[in-house]
């Protein structure tokens, strides 16, 4: 098996890297693929607790690179989802405990066994970021429609390109249709226009994400969750299916079409 290593990154913290990693990993296994999520945020690990796997950690990524622990021993199998595994970060070590070279080796080993290797990148552009992207084949950039996040995302795109990563796709997270409608939040087109990257998907702001994270369950298993639905669609896209991007809730589709007609006419 020859899988893909996808790094999930954003520059800015708190925009949803870990949540996205957890949901996409889970959704991909729901599609019947094998996926492993790698937490590279050494010292501030969170993917375990978001996934509800915090009590199952025995070894971590630092044990694998320095402690003579086999990669397979450190992988935690998620019993709820067939084919889903987690490689946790170390909580008490420094970022420098892993080198980009070692990270690349881990990714190469993992993609022999898995269809998808999802690397959850830490915030920032220092060592942790360099480690996380070292073994990546492609990148998913998470940005929310706020100036700080878009600015950081732009910086990240530049750094990814400089590192030789060619396939960089954007997920716009936490978009609020109501604010977009009244012109107080950047829209999908605005962000694509500014960042000039390919769009992978759009996830609406959704309280159910917090509710499911409270319980240690990814939102994709909640059929009522709109964010969960968005993540399931993104996972299908990653899996090679063509799935149209939903722009701002179906309810104002006609409204948008009319507005666009007016916009065109007024040009």
């Amino acid at each position: 098996m020859k899988g893909k290593v996808i790094v999930i990154t954003s520059g800015k913290g708190g925009v949803g890297k870990t949540t996205t990693t957890a949901n996409l990993g889970t959704a991909l296994t729901m599609l019947g693929r094998k996926a492993v999520m790698v937490d590279t945020d050494i010292g501030l690990r969170n993917l375990d607790v978001v996934m509800g796997l915090e009590n199952r950690i025995v070894f971590d990524i630092v044990d694998v690179v320095t402690g003579g622990i086999k990669l397979k021993q450190a992988l935690i199998k998620d019993k709820r989802f067939e084919g889903l595994y987690l490689l946790p970060a170390a909580q008490t070590k420094e970022k420098s405990a892993v080198s980009p070279h070692q990270m690349k080796n881990i990714c190469n080993d993992l993609k022999k066994e898995f269809d998808f290797v999802l690397v959850d990148c830490p915030a920032g552009i220092e060592q942790g970021f360099k480690n996380a992207i070292a073994g990546a084949d492609e990148a998913v950039i998470i940005a929310i429609p706020e100036v700080s996040s878009v600015r950081d995302a732009d910086r990240i795109v530049g750094l990814l390109e400089a590192a030789g990563l060619r396939k960089n796709q954007l997920i716009i997270n936490r978009i609020r249709p109501r604010m977009v409608k009244r012109g107080d939040m950047m829209d999908i087109e605005d962000m694509i226009d500014i960042l000039s990257v390919e769009l992978l998907g759009v996830v609406p702001e959704d309280e159910t994400v917090i509710v499911s994270t409270n319980k240690g369950e990814p939102a994709v298993i909640d059929t009522m969750s709109r964010a969960g639905e968005a993540y399931r669609r993104i996972a299908r896209r990653l899996n090679g299916e063509e799935v149209p991007v939903i722009t701002l809730g179906n309810e104002d589709k006609i409204f948008n079409r009319v507005r666009r007609m007016f916009k065109l006419a007024s040009r």
Partner: peptide
């Protein structure tokens, strides 16, 4: 007053990104 605070955001971003890039 509030119509299009996103327009302000876009304009500011364009400028700052040119310098960043």
């Amino acid at each position: 007053d509030r119509r299009g605070s996103k327009e302000v955001a876009k304009e500011r971003l364009r400028l700052v990104l040119v310098h960043d890039r």
